[in-house]
Simulated assay, not measured.
Amino acid sequence: MNTALKRTLCGAAAACATWLTALPAAAQAQGQHEDARHGKLLLTGGVSSVDGSAGGGLTPWALTGTYATEGQWGWSAFVTRLRTQDYGYWGGGLALSGDDRWELSLARQDFDTGATGTALGLPGLHLKQDVLAAKWRMAGEALLDSDSAWPQLALGVQMRRLDAAGLAPTLAALGARTRDTEFTLSATKLLLGPGLLLNGTLRWTRANQNGLLGFGSTASPARSLQPELSVAWLLRRDLAVGAEYRRMPDKLNPSALGEGLAADDWKDVFVAWAPTKTASLTVAWADLGRIVPAVAPKPQRGLYLSVQVTP
Rank of each mutant, 00 (worst) to 15 (best):
Q28N: 12
C10D: 13
D35Q: 14
A256S: 10
A207I: 03
L122H: 03
A36G: 07
L162S: 00
Y245W: 12
S76L: 09
F183L: 05
W73I: 10
D287Y: 08
A165M: 13
S105H: 14
A279V: 00
V231T: 12
R290L: 01
Y89C: 02
P123C: 11
S105V: 13
M138T: 02
T59D: 11
R301P: 11
T282E: 00
G11F: 04
L174P: 00
D180G: 07
D287R: 06
W19P: 09
G193V: 06
A29P: 12
S146N: 14
R179P: 08
G242Y: 04
A17F: 12
G91F: 11
G74F: 12
A22D: 09
R246C: 14
L153C: 15
N253C: 12
A294Y: 10
N199L: 04
A22H: 09
L9I: 07
A12I: 07
T118V: 06
T8N: 04
P311D: 08
M138H: 05
G117I: 02
T116G: 05
P254R: 01
F183T: 04
P169R: 04
K251H: 14
T178S: 08
L234N: 07
S280Y: 00
A4W: 06
R247Y: 11
V47E: 12
L185N: 08
L257H: 11
Y304T: 15
M1I: 02
W285P: 00
G302M: 02
N199S: 05
L41G: 13
S148I: 13
R247E: 09
S53I: 14
D86M: 01
A14T: 11
G121W: 02
A142M: 15
R236H: 08
D99S: 06
G11E: 02
A262T: 05
G216E: 11
L185R: 08
D110A: 01
L96T: 05
A13M: 09
A29I: 11
F78Y: 13
R108M: 02
A22R: 07
F215C: 10
